[in-house]
Design a protein around this nucleic acid. Structure first.
Length: 477
DNA sequence: GCTGCCGGGCT
DNA sequence: AGCCCGGCAGC
């Protein structure tokens, strides 16, 4: 056993559901961002606990505890892949004592937790406290801005799990210190910590229809919280909205700017309307000029909807389908340039978010991107993320299990599975699209596949198809 | 050369 | 159907 080293910055804890699916399918989307988070934040070690009991009702439910370098994700995955089939939940933290803390807290409130079929409740915690050293950059030397950057990055990483349009921004509270409100209201006993909640609703369930279950309710969430816990500064409705992702178009409309990004190779043009991006594709990529009807042949639109967290009014999805009902927006379109394991990408995102942290330093705000886990475009994980720029907390929620590809609709153009978050809005009238028109062989996928993501040494983590040397079903292009 | 994955064989 | 793998082809 490696020596346990408590590092600084943030701790992360989470419990994840088994979801009745293949562990390898559910865990990578959770683990990778968390490992990334830890790596991004403090290069810490992470502690992992697996438990069959989602409530951690007894200490004995902690089956395993281990440490691992945050950067060595494969080790964790490998271990989990071995352990999880008979486990259901895992607890995941950067600090060993957090395991026990969570254990105790969950045991205390377990009796309130009545929704047996609730898939999971995940906790996510950040801590500012320097627990001990052994880090590359002592946090004390970090400026507050750097910390904010870290947290923004963290939020972005974690938000990469979220691809839902059902994202709402909490009301702006100009005079409220979120640090205080969350810290005081948090369930974490340590005075130096603050907390967020991370819930995972039952699937609706596009990906695993054989295991339907009612979604996590707001009540069950509340039950999960410590009874003596005062309101943490966020009203119940808001909390419920945030965590349980009930559609509230009003808030979303007011907080999200919808843009449309061209997915043609080496383009990436972003326009504000679907019509605009379609026109762009017609004129620039399809070579059509000034035409309004293209029924004479094929027409492909490869673009994606992206949402920016702004307060400006976006016209939402209503403008998305000017051409054909087939272009009507599904719930979300994960972008092709979803957050990848490379930190550079997260840094890029950070650049986008940083001005927000400066312009609204005391406000609770929401970040949302249409990212799927790593570069897994079709994975649709409706959810939302909340993040406080001053370091208090953030929370994430989503509804669907991240990865499972059973029962997925088939693209009319490409006869292959495409997730519910199909990102290529391919609208083909007659013939096949240019990309696949020539050559019988399907173009090889450009995204990372299981082999690349998990490595040969973790072949058991691959999707079945990859293991059989078939077209990858997890990281579909 | 690496890697995705098709085609096909085996159980 | 599940599993495996030779070999092609894109990068």
């Amino acid at each position: 056993r490696q020596p346990k080293r408590h590092l600084t910055g943030f701790s992360v804890r989470a419990c994840a559901p088994h979801h009745g699916g293949v562990p390898g399918d559910i865990l990578p989307p959770l683990l990778a961002p968390l490992c990334l988070l830890a790596a991004e934040l403090d290069h810490s070690k992470l502690f992992l606990c697996l438990s069959r009991n989602p409530l951690y009702k007894s200490n004995s439910s902690i089956k395993r505890e281990m440490t691992f370098p945050a950067f060595q994700q494969e080790d964790v995955k490998s271990d989990i892949s071995q352990k999880l089939p008979d486990q259901q939940f895992l607890l995941f933290t950067t600090k060993e004592e957090d395991l026990k803390t969570a254990e105790t807290k969950k045991a205390n409130r377990a009796h309130e937790y009545e929704k047996e079929n609730t898939r999971s409740v995940c906790l996510l915690e950040q801590k500012r406290k320097v627990v001990s050293s052994n880090i590359d950059v002592p946090p004390a030397r970090k400026s507050s801005e750097e910390l904010d950057m870290d947290k923004v990055t963290a939020a972005m990483v974690l938000t990469s799990l979220s691809t839902s349009p059902l994202v709402r921004s909490p009301p702006v509270r100009p005079n409220e210190s979120l640090n205080g409100s969350w810290k005081e209201g948090g369930f974490v006993p340590s005075s130096t910590s603050s907390s967020g909640y991370w819930s995972w609703n039952a699937p609706s369930d596009q990906s695993n229809p054989s295991t339907p279950s009612p979604p996590l309710s707001a009540d069950s969430f509340k039950a999960f919280r410590t009874p003596s816990q005062p309101d943490d500064g966020i009203d119940e409705a808001e909390t419920s909205n945030l965590l349980f992702d009930e559609p509230i178009p009003r808030k979303r409309k007011n907080s999200m700017k919808v843009m449309f990004k061209c997915l043609w190779k080496n383009c990436g043009k972003v326009l504000s309307t679907a019509a605009g991006i379609q026109k762009h594709i017609r004129t620039v990529h399809l070579g059509r000029v000034g035409e309004s009807d293209y029924s004479d042949g094929e027409e492909d639109f490869y673009y994606t909807e992206i949402r920016l967290n702004t307060d400006s009014v976006a016209d939402g999805l209503s403008s998305l389908s000017p051409v054909s009902p087939s272009l009507a927006s599904p719930p979300s379109f994960p972008t092709q340039d979803a957050i990848r394991p490379e930190t550079s990408c997260a840094k890029t995102e950070t650049k986008l978010m940083t001005p927000l942290s400066r312009s609204a330093p005391t406000n609770l705000y929401l970040v949302h991107t249409d990212h799927a886990y790593q570069a897994t475009p079709p994975v649709n994980i409706p959810g939302s993320a909340k993040f406080t720029p001053n370091g208090s907390s953030f929370s994430i929620s989503w509804q669907s299990p991240p990865v499972t590809f059973t029962g997925i609709p088939v693209s009319p153009t490409h006869n292959r599975p495409a997730g519910s978050g199909e990102q290529k809005q391919s609208h083909t009238v007659l013939s096949s699209p240019p990309r696949v028109a020539f050559g019988l062989r399907k173009p090889r996928g450009e995204g990372k596949k299981c082999r690349k993501v998990y490595g040969m040494e973790n072949r058991d983590m691959w999707c079945t198809a990859c293991r059989w040397k078939k077209a990858c079903q997890r990281f579909i292009d």
